[in-house]
Nucleic acid binder design. Sequence first.
DNA 1: ACCTGAACACCGTTCAAGT
DNA 2: ACCTGAACACCGTTCAAGT
Lengths: 186, 186
Amino acid sequence: MTANSKEAILAAAKQSAQAHGYGGLNFRDLASEVGIKAASIYHHFPSKADLGVAVARRYWEDTKEDLDNLREADDPSSALRQYPGIFRRSLENANKLCLCSFMSAEYDDLPEPVKKEVQTFADVNVAWLSKELTAAGVVPAKKSEERARAIFAAVAGAQLMARSRSDIALFDTLIECYRAAGLLPA
Amino acid sequence: MTANSKEAILAAAKQSAQAHGYGGLNFRDLASEVGIKAASIYHHFPSKADLGVAVARRYWEDTKEDLDNLREADDPSSALRQYPGIFRRSLENANKLCLCSFMSAEYDDLPEPVKKEVQTFADVNVAWLSKELTAAGVVPAKKSEERARAIFAAVAGAQLMARSRSDIALFDTLIECYRAAGLLPA
DNA sequence: ACCTGAACACCGTTCAAGT
DNA sequence: ACCTGAACACCGTTCAAGT
Protein backbone atom coordinates (compact mmCIF):
# COMPACT_ATOMS: atom_id res chain seq x y z
CA MET A 1 0.00 0.00 0.00
CA THR A 2 1.43 3.33 -1.07
CA ALA A 3 -0.59 6.25 0.31
CA ASN A 4 -2.82 6.22 3.36
CA SER A 5 -5.88 4.00 3.41
CA LYS A 6 -8.40 6.78 3.68
CA GLU A 7 -7.37 8.26 0.35
CA ALA A 8 -7.20 4.80 -1.24
CA ILE A 9 -10.72 4.01 -0.02
CA LEU A 10 -11.99 7.31 -1.34
CA ALA A 11 -10.42 6.73 -4.76
CA ALA A 12 -11.72 3.18 -5.04
CA ALA A 13 -15.17 4.20 -3.83
CA LYS A 14 -15.34 6.94 -6.43
CA GLN A 15 -14.58 4.48 -9.24
CA SER A 16 -17.06 1.96 -7.92
CA ALA A 17 -19.84 4.50 -7.39
CA GLN A 18 -19.44 5.80 -10.94
CA ALA A 19 -19.88 2.28 -12.26
CA HIS A 20 -22.43 0.82 -9.83
CA GLY A 21 -23.95 3.73 -7.96
CA TYR A 22 -24.33 4.34 -4.26
CA GLY A 23 -26.45 1.23 -3.84
CA GLY A 24 -23.86 -0.83 -5.67
CA LEU A 25 -21.04 0.36 -3.42
CA ASN A 26 -20.10 -2.47 -1.11
CA PHE A 27 -17.57 -2.45 1.68
CA ARG A 28 -16.19 -5.93 1.10
CA ASP A 29 -15.14 -5.37 -2.52
CA LEU A 30 -13.95 -1.90 -1.67
CA ALA A 31 -11.79 -3.22 1.13
CA SER A 32 -10.26 -5.98 -0.95
CA GLU A 33 -9.32 -3.43 -3.60
CA VAL A 34 -7.55 -1.32 -1.00
CA GLY A 35 -5.95 -4.33 0.62
CA ILE A 36 -7.70 -4.20 3.99
CA LYS A 37 -10.77 -5.81 5.50
CA ALA A 38 -14.31 -4.44 5.32
CA ALA A 39 -14.40 -3.71 9.03
CA SER A 40 -11.33 -1.50 8.72
CA ILE A 41 -13.19 0.96 6.52
CA TYR A 42 -15.23 1.94 9.54
CA HIS A 43 -12.12 3.26 11.16
CA HIS A 44 -11.99 5.92 8.43
CA PHE A 45 -15.70 6.35 7.67
CA PRO A 46 -18.17 5.74 10.50
CA SER A 47 -20.96 4.66 8.12
CA LYS A 48 -21.78 4.10 4.45
CA ALA A 49 -23.59 7.42 4.41
CA ASP A 50 -20.40 9.15 5.60
CA LEU A 51 -18.40 7.48 2.87
CA GLY A 52 -21.05 8.49 0.34
CA VAL A 53 -20.86 12.10 1.45
CA ALA A 54 -17.06 12.10 1.30
CA VAL A 55 -17.02 10.56 -2.18
CA ALA A 56 -19.61 12.92 -3.60
CA ARG A 57 -17.93 15.95 -2.04
CA ARG A 58 -14.54 14.94 -3.36
CA TYR A 59 -16.14 14.39 -6.72
CA TRP A 60 -17.48 17.91 -7.08
CA GLU A 61 -14.31 19.37 -5.59
CA ASP A 62 -12.24 17.63 -8.25
CA THR A 63 -14.64 18.76 -10.96
CA LYS A 64 -14.53 22.31 -9.66
CA GLU A 65 -10.76 22.23 -9.90
CA ASP A 66 -10.93 20.96 -13.49
CA LEU A 67 -13.36 23.71 -14.35
CA ASP A 68 -11.26 26.41 -12.71
CA ASN A 69 -8.21 25.19 -14.58
CA LEU A 70 -10.15 25.35 -17.83
CA ARG A 71 -11.18 28.90 -17.05
CA GLU A 72 -7.64 30.00 -16.30
CA ALA A 73 -6.08 28.32 -19.31
CA ASP A 74 -8.49 29.58 -21.94
CA ASP A 75 -10.80 32.38 -22.95
CA PRO A 76 -14.51 31.82 -22.21
CA SER A 77 -15.39 30.57 -25.70
CA SER A 78 -12.62 27.98 -25.72
CA ALA A 79 -13.38 26.97 -22.15
CA LEU A 80 -17.03 26.39 -23.07
CA ARG A 81 -15.94 24.37 -26.06
CA GLN A 82 -13.97 22.09 -23.81
CA TYR A 83 -16.69 21.65 -21.20
CA PRO A 84 -18.16 18.43 -22.66
CA GLY A 85 -14.65 16.96 -22.48
CA ILE A 86 -15.08 16.59 -18.74
CA PHE A 87 -17.99 14.21 -19.27
CA ARG A 88 -16.21 12.54 -22.16
CA ARG A 89 -13.30 11.62 -19.91
CA SER A 90 -15.60 9.57 -17.68
CA LEU A 91 -16.65 7.51 -20.67
CA GLU A 92 -13.02 7.10 -21.65
CA ASN A 93 -12.38 5.79 -18.15
CA ALA A 94 -14.01 2.36 -18.56
CA ASN A 95 -17.36 3.80 -19.75
CA LYS A 96 -18.03 5.42 -16.38
CA LEU A 97 -20.93 7.72 -15.65
CA CYS A 98 -20.89 11.03 -13.87
CA LEU A 99 -21.25 10.12 -10.21
CA CYS A 100 -23.96 12.68 -9.74
CA SER A 101 -26.00 11.47 -12.70
CA PHE A 102 -25.99 8.04 -11.15
CA MET A 103 -26.91 9.42 -7.76
CA SER A 104 -29.67 11.53 -9.30
CA ALA A 105 -31.21 8.33 -10.56
CA GLU A 106 -30.85 6.81 -7.09
CA TYR A 107 -32.17 9.94 -5.44
CA ASP A 108 -35.02 8.30 -3.53
CA ASP A 109 -32.64 5.95 -1.75
CA LEU A 110 -29.90 8.45 -0.88
CA PRO A 111 -29.16 9.58 2.69
CA GLU A 112 -30.05 13.25 3.07
CA PRO A 113 -26.46 14.54 3.38
CA VAL A 114 -25.48 12.70 0.20
CA LYS A 115 -28.34 14.39 -1.65
CA LYS A 116 -26.90 17.74 -0.67
CA GLU A 117 -23.52 16.95 -2.20
CA VAL A 118 -25.19 15.77 -5.42
CA GLN A 119 -26.96 19.09 -5.70
CA THR A 120 -23.72 20.94 -5.07
CA PHE A 121 -22.18 19.15 -8.04
CA ALA A 122 -24.95 20.49 -10.25
CA ASP A 123 -24.64 23.94 -8.69
CA VAL A 124 -20.90 24.06 -9.36
CA ASN A 125 -21.40 23.13 -12.99
CA VAL A 126 -24.27 25.53 -13.53
CA ALA A 127 -22.41 28.42 -11.87
CA TRP A 128 -19.33 27.84 -13.99
CA LEU A 129 -21.31 27.54 -17.23
CA SER A 130 -23.40 30.57 -16.40
CA LYS A 131 -20.35 32.75 -15.83
CA GLU A 132 -18.59 31.58 -18.99
CA LEU A 133 -21.71 31.98 -21.11
CA THR A 134 -22.04 35.56 -19.98
CA ALA A 135 -18.33 36.28 -20.40
CA ALA A 136 -18.37 34.80 -23.88
CA GLY A 137 -21.38 36.88 -24.77
CA VAL A 138 -23.40 33.85 -25.78
CA VAL A 139 -26.48 34.93 -23.88
CA PRO A 140 -27.41 38.03 -21.88
CA ALA A 141 -26.58 37.74 -18.18
CA LYS A 142 -30.24 37.47 -17.33
CA LYS A 143 -30.62 34.28 -19.37
CA SER A 144 -27.27 32.71 -18.59
CA GLU A 145 -28.24 30.57 -15.61
CA GLU A 146 -31.23 29.09 -17.37
CA ARG A 147 -29.09 28.27 -20.39
CA ALA A 148 -26.39 26.87 -18.13
CA ARG A 149 -28.88 24.47 -16.59
CA ALA A 150 -30.07 23.36 -20.02
CA ILE A 151 -26.52 22.67 -21.16
CA PHE A 152 -25.67 20.76 -18.01
CA ALA A 153 -28.79 18.59 -18.30
CA ALA A 154 -28.25 17.94 -22.00
CA VAL A 155 -24.59 17.01 -21.66
CA ALA A 156 -25.38 14.68 -18.76
CA GLY A 157 -28.11 13.12 -20.88
CA ALA A 158 -25.71 12.64 -23.77
CA GLN A 159 -23.26 10.90 -21.46
CA LEU A 160 -26.01 8.64 -20.14
CA MET A 161 -27.13 7.64 -23.62
CA ALA A 162 -23.57 7.08 -24.85
CA ARG A 163 -22.82 4.93 -21.83
CA SER A 164 -25.79 2.69 -22.52
CA ARG A 165 -24.25 1.98 -25.92
CA SER A 166 -20.63 2.01 -24.74
CA ASP A 167 -20.13 4.39 -27.63
CA ILE A 168 -17.95 7.47 -27.17
CA ALA A 169 -18.43 8.44 -30.81
CA LEU A 170 -22.15 8.74 -30.09
CA PHE A 171 -21.34 11.19 -27.29
CA ASP A 172 -19.29 13.28 -29.72
CA THR A 173 -22.08 13.25 -32.30
CA LEU A 174 -24.63 14.34 -29.71
CA ILE A 175 -22.45 17.24 -28.57
CA GLU A 176 -21.88 18.29 -32.18
CA CYS A 177 -25.61 18.18 -32.76
CA TYR A 178 -26.21 20.38 -29.69
CA ARG A 179 -23.81 22.87 -31.27
CA ALA A 180 -25.43 22.67 -34.71
CA ALA A 181 -28.89 23.11 -33.21
CA GLY A 182 -27.79 26.13 -31.18
CA LEU A 183 -27.92 24.82 -27.62
CA LEU A 184 -24.14 24.94 -27.25
CA PRO A 185 -22.15 27.82 -28.76
CA ALA A 186 -20.52 26.76 -31.99
CA MET B 1 -56.30 -9.60 -5.74
CA THR B 2 -58.10 -8.48 -8.88
CA ALA B 3 -56.20 -9.55 -11.99
CA ASN B 4 -53.72 -12.38 -12.30
CA SER B 5 -50.51 -12.30 -10.31
CA LYS B 6 -48.23 -12.02 -13.30
CA GLU B 7 -49.72 -8.73 -14.45
CA ALA B 8 -49.80 -7.41 -10.89
CA ILE B 9 -46.12 -8.28 -10.44
CA LEU B 10 -45.24 -6.61 -13.72
CA ALA B 11 -47.07 -3.42 -12.78
CA ALA B 12 -45.53 -3.24 -9.31
CA ALA B 13 -42.07 -4.04 -10.67
CA LYS B 14 -42.35 -1.26 -13.21
CA GLN B 15 -43.12 1.28 -10.51
CA SER B 16 -40.34 0.01 -8.26
CA ALA B 17 -37.73 -0.11 -11.02
CA GLN B 18 -38.49 3.47 -12.00
CA ALA B 19 -37.87 4.57 -8.42
CA HIS B 20 -35.04 2.26 -7.35
CA GLY B 21 -33.61 0.78 -10.50
CA TYR B 22 -32.99 -2.82 -11.48
CA GLY B 23 -30.62 -3.29 -8.57
CA GLY B 24 -33.15 -1.82 -6.17
CA LEU B 25 -35.91 -4.13 -7.35
CA ASN B 26 -36.61 -6.49 -4.50
CA PHE B 27 -38.78 -9.56 -4.52
CA ARG B 28 -39.98 -9.34 -0.92
CA ASP B 29 -41.45 -5.87 -1.21
CA LEU B 30 -42.76 -6.69 -4.65
CA ALA B 31 -44.45 -9.83 -3.38
CA SER B 32 -46.03 -8.14 -0.38
CA GLU B 33 -47.47 -5.49 -2.65
CA VAL B 34 -49.04 -8.16 -4.82
CA GLY B 35 -50.17 -10.23 -1.84
CA ILE B 36 -48.03 -13.32 -2.30
CA LYS B 37 -44.64 -14.53 -1.02
CA ALA B 38 -41.33 -13.63 -2.58
CA ALA B 39 -40.65 -17.17 -3.68
CA SER B 40 -43.93 -17.25 -5.59
CA ILE B 41 -42.70 -14.64 -8.02
CA TYR B 42 -40.30 -17.21 -9.40
CA HIS B 43 -43.21 -19.21 -10.64
CA HIS B 44 -44.07 -16.38 -13.04
CA PHE B 45 -40.54 -15.18 -13.76
CA PRO B 46 -37.79 -17.79 -13.55
CA SER B 47 -35.18 -15.23 -12.50
CA LYS B 48 -34.73 -11.59 -11.72
CA ALA B 49 -33.22 -11.17 -15.18
CA ASP B 50 -36.41 -12.52 -16.75
CA LEU B 51 -38.52 -10.13 -14.72
CA GLY B 52 -36.19 -7.32 -15.75
CA VAL B 53 -36.59 -8.19 -19.41
CA ALA B 54 -40.38 -8.40 -19.10
CA VAL B 55 -40.58 -5.06 -17.28
CA ALA B 56 -38.30 -3.26 -19.72
CA ARG B 57 -40.08 -4.73 -22.73
CA ARG B 58 -43.49 -3.79 -21.38
CA TYR B 59 -42.12 -0.35 -20.67
CA TRP B 60 -41.08 0.37 -24.24
CA GLU B 61 -44.23 -1.27 -25.59
CA ASP B 62 -46.35 1.08 -23.48
CA THR B 63 -44.27 4.06 -24.56
CA LYS B 64 -44.55 3.04 -28.20
CA GLU B 65 -48.31 2.95 -27.82
CA ASP B 66 -48.32 6.43 -26.27
CA LEU B 67 -46.18 7.71 -29.10
CA ASP B 68 -48.35 6.13 -31.78
CA ASN B 69 -51.42 7.65 -30.18
CA LEU B 70 -49.75 11.04 -30.20
CA ARG B 71 -48.94 10.64 -33.86
CA GLU B 72 -52.50 9.69 -34.77
CA ALA B 73 -54.14 12.44 -32.74
CA ASP B 74 -52.04 15.33 -33.92
CA ASP B 75 -50.04 16.76 -36.77
CA PRO B 76 -46.25 16.27 -36.58
CA SER B 77 -45.54 19.71 -35.09
CA SER B 78 -48.08 19.31 -32.31
CA ALA B 79 -46.99 15.75 -31.65
CA LEU B 80 -43.39 16.90 -31.29
CA ARG B 81 -44.52 19.62 -28.93
CA GLN B 82 -46.14 17.05 -26.71
CA TYR B 83 -43.20 14.65 -26.71
CA PRO B 84 -41.59 15.94 -23.48
CA GLY B 85 -44.94 15.39 -21.78
CA ILE B 86 -44.22 11.67 -21.77
CA PHE B 87 -41.18 12.25 -19.57
CA ARG B 88 -43.03 14.84 -17.52
CA ARG B 89 -45.69 12.30 -16.60
CA SER B 90 -43.07 10.12 -14.91
CA LEU B 91 -42.09 13.00 -12.68
CA GLU B 92 -45.74 13.67 -11.93
CA ASN B 93 -46.02 10.04 -10.89
CA ALA B 94 -44.15 10.32 -7.56
CA ASN B 95 -41.02 11.86 -9.09
CA LYS B 96 -40.24 8.71 -11.07
CA LEU B 97 -37.49 8.41 -13.62
CA CYS B 98 -37.66 6.89 -17.07
CA LEU B 99 -36.97 3.22 -16.50
CA CYS B 100 -34.43 3.16 -19.28
CA SER B 101 -32.53 6.17 -17.97
CA PHE B 102 -32.15 4.37 -14.67
CA MET B 103 -31.09 1.20 -16.39
CA SER B 104 -28.62 3.10 -18.56
CA ALA B 105 -26.94 4.23 -15.37
CA GLU B 106 -26.91 0.64 -14.14
CA TYR B 107 -25.72 -0.65 -17.48
CA ASP B 108 -22.61 -2.45 -16.22
CA ASP B 109 -24.68 -4.57 -13.85
CA LEU B 110 -27.51 -5.43 -16.24
CA PRO B 111 -28.05 -8.93 -17.62
CA GLU B 112 -27.43 -8.97 -21.36
CA PRO B 113 -31.08 -9.49 -22.41
CA VAL B 114 -32.15 -6.54 -20.23
CA LYS B 115 -29.58 -4.34 -21.96
CA LYS B 116 -31.20 -5.18 -25.28
CA GLU B 117 -34.63 -4.01 -24.12
CA VAL B 118 -33.12 -0.78 -22.80
CA GLN B 119 -31.65 -0.10 -26.22
CA THR B 120 -34.96 -0.86 -27.88
CA PHE B 121 -36.59 1.82 -25.73
CA ALA B 122 -34.10 4.35 -27.07
CA ASP B 123 -34.56 3.04 -30.62
CA VAL B 124 -38.34 3.41 -30.41
CA ASN B 125 -38.04 7.00 -29.20
CA VAL B 126 -35.42 7.96 -31.77
CA ALA B 127 -37.36 6.37 -34.64
CA TRP B 128 -40.55 8.19 -33.67
CA LEU B 129 -38.80 11.53 -33.22
CA SER B 130 -36.89 11.12 -36.46
CA LYS B 131 -40.05 10.47 -38.45
CA GLU B 132 -41.94 13.38 -36.89
CA LEU B 133 -39.02 15.77 -37.35
CA THR B 134 -38.90 14.97 -41.03
CA ALA B 135 -42.67 15.15 -41.43
CA ALA B 136 -42.77 18.50 -39.66
CA GLY B 137 -40.00 19.78 -41.89
CA VAL B 138 -37.83 20.70 -38.92
CA VAL B 139 -34.71 19.13 -40.36
CA PRO B 140 -33.87 17.47 -43.68
CA ALA B 141 -34.40 13.70 -43.67
CA LYS B 142 -30.68 13.13 -43.74
CA LYS B 143 -30.20 14.93 -40.42
CA SER B 144 -33.35 13.77 -38.68
CA GLU B 145 -32.02 10.73 -36.88
CA GLU B 146 -29.05 12.59 -35.47
CA ARG B 147 -31.33 15.36 -34.24
CA ALA B 148 -33.76 12.79 -32.85
CA ARG B 149 -30.99 11.26 -30.78
CA ALA B 150 -29.95 14.67 -29.47
CA ILE B 151 -33.50 15.49 -28.42
CA PHE B 152 -33.97 12.14 -26.74
CA ALA B 153 -30.72 12.49 -24.78
CA ALA B 154 -31.47 16.07 -23.78
CA VAL B 155 -35.02 15.38 -22.62
CA ALA B 156 -33.83 12.37 -20.60
CA GLY B 157 -31.14 14.58 -19.07
CA ALA B 158 -33.70 17.22 -18.18
CA GLN B 159 -35.83 14.61 -16.46
CA LEU B 160 -32.83 13.32 -14.52
CA MET B 161 -31.89 16.79 -13.32
CA ALA B 162 -35.47 17.68 -12.40
CA ARG B 163 -35.83 14.45 -10.46
CA SER B 164 -32.75 15.19 -8.38
CA ARG B 165 -34.48 18.41 -7.28
CA SER B 166 -37.99 16.94 -7.14
CA ASP B 167 -38.88 19.95 -9.25
CA ILE B 168 -41.25 19.57 -12.18
CA ALA B 169 -41.12 23.30 -12.86
CA LEU B 170 -37.39 22.90 -13.51
CA PHE B 171 -38.19 20.25 -16.12
CA ASP B 172 -40.57 22.66 -17.84
CA THR B 173 -37.99 25.43 -17.80
CA LEU B 174 -35.34 23.15 -19.28
CA ILE B 175 -37.67 22.08 -22.10
CA GLU B 176 -38.58 25.71 -22.79
CA CYS B 177 -34.91 26.56 -22.91
CA TYR B 178 -34.25 23.74 -25.39
CA ARG B 179 -36.95 25.33 -27.55
CA ALA B 180 -35.59 28.84 -27.17
CA ALA B 181 -32.06 27.67 -27.98
CA GLY B 182 -33.24 25.80 -31.08
CA LEU B 183 -32.76 22.18 -30.10
CA LEU B 184 -36.49 21.52 -29.99
CA PRO B 185 -38.80 23.08 -32.57
CA ALA B 186 -40.58 26.10 -31.14
C1' DA C 1 -3.72 4.83 15.46
C1' DC C 2 -4.90 1.22 12.59
C1' DC C 3 -6.48 -3.20 11.58
C1' DT C 4 -8.92 -7.85 11.98
C1' DG C 5 -11.89 -12.26 12.83
C1' DA C 6 -16.02 -13.42 14.12
C1' DA C 7 -20.53 -12.56 14.74
C1' DC C 8 -25.20 -10.30 14.14
C1' DA C 9 -29.47 -9.09 11.94
C1' DC C 10 -31.18 -8.47 7.62
C1' DC C 11 -32.50 -9.38 2.86
C1' DG C 12 -32.45 -11.02 -2.09
C1' DT C 13 -32.56 -15.39 -4.16
C1' DT C 14 -33.17 -20.29 -4.80
C1' DC C 15 -35.23 -24.85 -4.56
C1' DA C 16 -37.46 -28.88 -2.96
C1' DA C 17 -41.73 -29.83 -1.43
C1' DG C 18 -46.55 -28.81 -0.59
C1' DT C 19 -51.62 -28.07 -2.39
C1' DA D 1 -50.58 -24.43 -12.09
C1' DC D 2 -49.57 -21.92 -8.09
C1' DC D 3 -47.54 -21.18 -3.83
C1' DT D 4 -44.43 -21.62 0.34
C1' DG D 5 -40.86 -22.75 4.23
C1' DA D 6 -36.46 -23.09 4.80
C1' DA D 7 -31.98 -22.57 3.40
C1' DC D 8 -28.20 -20.00 1.21
C1' DA D 9 -25.22 -16.13 0.11
C1' DC D 10 -24.29 -11.62 0.89
C1' DC D 11 -24.87 -7.17 2.97
C1' DG D 12 -23.80 -3.20 6.42
C1' DT D 13 -22.45 -3.02 10.88
C1' DT D 14 -20.49 -3.93 15.50
C1' DC D 15 -17.02 -5.14 18.82
C1' DA D 16 -13.55 -7.26 21.43
C1' DA D 17 -9.04 -8.22 20.52
C1' DG D 18 -4.62 -7.79 18.12
C1' DT D 19 -0.37 -4.87 16.61
